[in-house]
Design a protein around this nucleic acid. Structure first.
Lengths: 122, 122
DNA sequence: ATATCACTTAGAGTTTACTTCAAGTCAATA
DNA sequence: TATTGACTTGAAGTAAACTCTAAGTGATAT
């Protein structure tokens, strides 16, 4: 699969895919002798994972580190688990904060709908 | 209330509070004749709102716009409601993406716990 | 009285995550 | 054969949201 197809599939740009590779989040992707990248199924799976985690706001640095550990083989399993747990915690806190903001927005919109807004800032 | 107290209360830095004010997310905050800011209860309420929304990732620009509309008085009610609804939608999409990533992290950690990791990338 | 400390300003610098640019290669099509 | 279009590279540029610096003021503690 070529870069533009992968980009389209995941709604990323080719530039972003090359950037992720440069940063070590994916790949290195193997290339034909013309130098053109050819993405394998495993590459695609990883991109899917990266896309999901990035959409949730996990940092490039974490994903980079995770791939490095992965390359390191079985002896990194413990550390890999640890950073997953750490990231889950961070994510949970963000989720809660966002839920709170969501509820608050809902409440505010309700007030607008009921026409009971007065001079309340907030 | 002085800037450092407010900063401590909301776990922000004084720099951030001045920055928010400069950008028009809050204030302008009234100052004593020595030029020192004195935050009122209404200021605090607004900061609480801004903090909540920022923690959820809503953009500075939205908050700025919302304050501008607020200053505009009752004739802006319709537009205010509209942008709240728009932001709620954006927030909902992020929440869903994050929930998905959270579930995925949970699942992965479970696999690590059960020692069934093989060579699976992802 | 002098030093310390919190505050003030305008403006420059930083971080994260892309995004764009310039210059070039290669295969295919008019 | 010439041009079009997708790809390549390294490097510079950008946007958002802070964060820090330098230079200065003014109240309080020694």
């Amino acid at each position: 699969m070529q870069i533009s197809e992968v980009a389209k599939e995941f709604d990323l740009t080719p530039d972003t895919l090359r950037y992720y590779e440069r940063e070590g989040l994916i790949g290195p992707i193997s290339k034909g002798k013309n130098g053109i990248r050819n993405y394998t199924d495993d590459d695609i799976k990883r991109i899917q994972f990266v896309k999901c985690m990035r959409a949730a706001g996990l940092e490039i640095n974490f994903l980079k580190r995770y791939l490095q550990l992965f390359e390191g083989g079985d002896k990194t399993i413990k550390e890999r688990r640890e950073i997953l747990v750490e990231q889950r915690k961070i994510l949970k806190e963000k989720l809660d904060a966002m839920q709170e903001a969501y509820d608050r927005l809902n409440y505010k919109i309700e007030l607008y709908d009921k026409n009971i807004l007065d001079k309340n800032l907030m």
